[in-house]
């Protein structure tokens, strides 16, 4: 198969194909950047949600959990934890989060452990608001089930 292809043909496929792919990629990127605010309900991104994201990063939560399917696979997916543990009710979820975060690490022997992060009540609330906001992102019907 490769006998019929010359070096200059291969070179042209590289430069031509690469440029073509890059241009399409740039155009789609441009469109995606315009669509993300709507798909993620950016208007609901309160100060608390932004503070929650910062806490999520400062404590390296993604080092164990996945969120929207990305991260580590040591601990559960958290995009839909609002539905799973809070029944999609803000009051229930926030109360759950307060008691859950305070109870860490659980003393079940050899269960995978979540560290105690010593967050204040307000911080846990921000983290909850961030997770609630994330749960409402339009991710093309993902995750497929409540178990995440």
């Amino acid at each position: 198969m490769t006998e019929r292809i010359t070096k200059s043909m291969a070179k042209n496929i590289y430069y031509g194909g690469g440029t073509f792919a890059l241009l399409i990629f740039l155009a789609l990127t441009f469109d995606t950047v315009h669509q993300i605010p709507k798909r993620s309900n950016q208007q609901n991104m309160t100060e608390n949600v932004v503070a929650g994201k910062k806490l999520w990063e400062d404590n390296n939560c993604v080092g164990c959990h996945t969120i929207v399917g990305e991260g580590a696979y040591y601990a559960p997916e958290l995009m839909n934890v609002f539905q799973r543990r809070g029944g999609a009710d803000e009051g229930t979820f926030k109360a759950y989060m307060q008691s859950w975060m305070a109870a860490q690490p659980l003393d079940t022997p050899n269960r995978r452990k979540m560290p105690q992060f010593n967050l204040s009540k307000e911080e846990v609330d921000s983290l909850s608001d961030f997770l609630i906001w994330t749960s409402k992102v339009n991710a093309n019907e993902w995750p497929p089930t409540i178990e995440g």
């Binding site: 490769t2 292809i5 010359t6 070096k7 291969a10 070179k11 496929i13 590289y14 194909g17 690469g18 073509f20 792919a21 890059l22 399409i24 990629f25 789609l28 469109d31 995606t32 669509q35 993300i36 798909r39 993620s40 929207v68 399917g69 990305e70 992102v137 339009n138 991710a139 093309n140 019907e141 993902w142 995750p143």
Partner: peptide, 30 residues
């Protein structure tokens, strides 16, 4: 050289837009 060009041509054509396989279910458009 010919082989190298051919390999990286396929890399560029597939790999750049292939980034899209990470954008299925994370909030990016359909």
């Amino acid at each position: 050289d010919k082989w190298l060009y051919l390999i990286i041509a396929m890399t560029m054509v597939s790999g750049i837009l292939g980034t899209g396989h990470h954008f299925f279910y994370m909030g990016a458009p359909e």
